[in-house]
């Protein structure tokens, strides 16, 4: 039981970190950013390149991945999302195509075979039968700090409140003098940064491969659907529900059913409570 709790908490923290950037875009920009998983994948490779191939310190690799992730978000907003803003389906299709293009670009640069990312912070502690790597522990702590920081940023800063206003009512916010374009740019930048940080931790927890973007994208979509659109608190709670469900199914039922219960939960929530467990909330 102890190992289920420990691994559930650790995995959930990582999932929350993965999902929050996706939630942000969905809430403020009303865009289902299907290239979000590709940010995660590309950021893993950026970290791999700087830290593992060039030998830069891990923290420098992490920051560079985050900065380049933010740049990717800004570029995507300006080059794809903004010109297609009126057509949500076109935006979603183009973000999906972008993900495939990024996958091909990564294959071209780094090859098709999977790579193992070294831990950002090496070492482990054993608690009962559970092994906790410092790497995942740091990812979980970072996740909580980032989520708390993001929450405070949105609640207490002028820009954050403007983001909240846009997420509630774009036209109203615009009439009130909020620069919608600027807020969207900031949101896409933050989302790209958060996705990149999550990507480095996710890749170091699992593996680095050109197809690894699909799994975190599904996790992010699941959390948004089940949690309800755009709530940071909802994201945190549902990340823990899904994380614990996965660990319990692996530990007590069958490892092959790991993702099945998540999918069933999505279907159940869509049928019973289409707005998600936490409904439609502002940030």
């Amino acid at each position: 039981m102890l190992e289920i709790i420990i691994q559930g908490v650790l995995l959930s923290g990582l999932y929350a970190l993965i999902a929050v950037g996706f939630t942000l875009i969905f809430s403020v920009g009303r865009v289902l950013n299907l290239a979000y998983g590709a940010y995660i994948m590309v950021a893993g490779y950026i970290y791999f390149y700087f830290s593992q191939l060039l030998g830069l310190p891990p923290i420098a690799g992490l920051l560079l991945a985050g900065i380049l992730g933010a740049c990717m978000g800004l570029l995507k907003y300006n080059l794809i999302v903004k010109p297609l803003k009126a057509d949500h389906i076109a935006v979603e299709i183009s973000t999906l195509i972008l993900a495939v293009v990024l996958q091909s670009a990564v294959i071209l640069c780094f090859g098709n075979s999977a790579k193992i990312l070294l831990p950002i912070i090496p070492g482990v502690i054993h608690i009962g039968n559970a092994t906790v790597t410092y790497n995942v522990l740091v990812a979980t702590i970072a996740s909580w700090l980032i989520l708390i920081g993001l929450y405070l940023f949105i609640k207490r800063t002028h820009v954050g409140r403007a983001m909240m206003a846009v997420s509630m009512d774009t036209k109203g916010a615009s009439i009130s003098g909020v620069d919608i374009d600027k807020i969207n740019m900031i949101t896409w930048g933050i989302s790209g940064f958060l996705g990149a940080i999550a990507g480095v931790f996710f890749a170091s927890y699992t593996q680095l491969s050109p197809t690894m973007w699909v799994a975190p994208l599904i996790i992010a979509i699941a959390i948004v659907i089940v949690g309800g659109i755009g709530s940071i608190i909802g994201t945190l709670v549902v990340a823990h529900i899904i994380g614990f469900m996965e660990i319990i199914s692996v530990a007590l039922i069958s490892p092959q059913l790991r993702g099945v219960f998540t999918m069933l939960l999505i279907i159940l929530v869509l049928v019973i409570r289409p707005k998600g467990l936490f409904g439609r909330e502002e940030l």
Binding site: A130, T131, T206, M212, A251, R258
Partner: peptide, 15 residues
């Protein structure tokens, strides 16, 4: 028995 798409083996090794 695990699925070949598994990328997180921590709970499996604990088991």
């Amino acid at each position: 028995v695990y699925d070949v798409a598994t990328v997180d083996f921590a709970p499996l090794y604990s088991r």
